[in-house]
Design a protein around this nucleic acid. Structure first.
Lengths: 236, 236
DNA sequence: AAATGACTAAATAGTCTTATTTGGTCATTT
DNA sequence: AAATGACCAAATAAGACTATTTAGTCATTT
């Protein structure tokens, strides 16, 4: 039974995106041509334009796919960790998932050699603010249920978490070699720092923990859903 | 009584360096010419070469002066704060002192528009490692006196402090405007995060605190002294 | 109907020449 | 003796022209 046409078409789109990703990491965005990608994907150049109208759209689809894969990876990692559905677990697995995706890592670190002009469309303040707002909603839930301290403003705590995460993430490449740590250990320290930074004075009850795990799942689901329709349209 | 020749010469060097600093911040390093600096400082172009042999030496002296001024500022800030001579105090006042020095801030943030090619000489891994080693010595003292937890390796704690500091410092410019905090509050949160991250299980005795304040002063003095002779030779 | 790859306008890179600027020098001025 | 600023070789920028490459198109092939 041969594969339906739509499935073959979708598989080819994925293959083209795979090729694009590999070549960006190898040569950088600016040096990667449509011809290179077509050759690597084993299709004709014109075939690429059957999926996307412009070079820019192709790379836009690639970034969306990367973000969706990151979210799915994060979902899987937190689900596989008994302590995953917590704020420290979220940050720990976020940094590990991100480090496992060199393209997104390069974007976040503004690695000009790799992402070049691609970076310009990927650092929208509005999108970042949106993500922070979504996170803020989850954090507010945790505050209300006594799972994090509430003696700082909500906005301040968004700041604290962002600073800690960004610090651990970026310092990983800035440290002299003799001071570097394995990713796993870095992620654990990140989680520990976050936990201690936001630790409430007293323990929360188990019902609050259960509710928080639900809120966590909702937060993740919402961020996955936010990309899903966009991605569906970007890969045809 | 006219000023001695050496004092006048030194004052002129400072004036030239002031001019250079102002112009870098305005136009960026790459666009700032020796002619511009001479004009701004109110001296002839050739006069500049009475102080430094090359453009590069002039800017090298400027960076040394900046670092020395930062250290002095830090010294003054921590001395004026009752809780200054502590690790959290060190970090709090470091970030505030650094933010008050736009040129060093631009270097640390790798702000290409401002520092351009100047950055290449200012990100030596060896120098960074040296600074981390000096800090590590101070941190080791704190561990031995029960002022910070000792259930993580010393190297890991150097990492933790670096990550937290770097995170608070860099996220300050990345945050969308509606999520930003005033510098003072940022510095307080940085200090708090550090304190909690490295908090030992039990309180240290007052003798340990007093000894740590001495160690703190030594750490600062050593880093000031490390630059002093270099600076003396760079500004003649 | 779908995939292909030759074609082409536009973009980019390379080369050469000319124009301008700049770092550093040093004869002149103070 | 010290400060100055005109001078100049080298560096950089600008412009014109040529060569090459690339994104996108579409007639041809499958």
């Amino acid at each position: 039974m041969p594969q339906p046409a739509a499935a073959r078409r979708h598989e080819r789109a994925q293959r083209i995106l795979d090729a694009a990703a590999a070549l960006i990491l190898r040569w950088g965005y600016n040096k990667t041509t449509i011809d290179d990608i077509a050759r690597q994907a084993g299709v004709a150049k014109g075939t690429i334009y059957l999926h996307w109208n412009t070079r820019e759209e192709l790379f836009g689809a690639l970034m969306l796919r990367e973000k969706a894969a990151l979210a799915a990876d994060l979902r899987a990692r937190t689900a596989a960790d008994p302590a995953g559905a917590t704020l420290p677990g979220l940050l720990k697995h976020s940094v590990l998932a991100l480090m496992a995706r060199p393209l997104l890592k390069a974007v976040l670190l503004r690695d000009i050699d790799i992402v070049g002009k691609l970076a310009q469309g990927q650092h929208s303040t509005a999108a970042y603010a949106e993500r922070l707002l979504a996170f803020q909603t989850y954090l507010e839930f945790l505050r209300q249920h006594g799972l994090v301290r509430a003696d700082q403003s909500l906005a301040e705590q968004v700041y604290v978490v962002s600073a800690i995460f960004m610090g651990y993430f970026t310092v990983a490449t800035l440290m002299p070699p003799e001071f570097r740590l394995p990713d796993d250990r870095l992620a654990e320290l990140l989680a520990e720092t976050t936990r201690r930074a936001l630790e409430p004075g007293s323990d929360a009850d188990p019902a609050a923990r259960e509710a928080a795990a639900q809120a966590f799942a909702q937060y993740l689901d919402r961020s996955i859903a936010a990309n899903h329709e966009q991605l569906r349209q970007a890969i045809a």
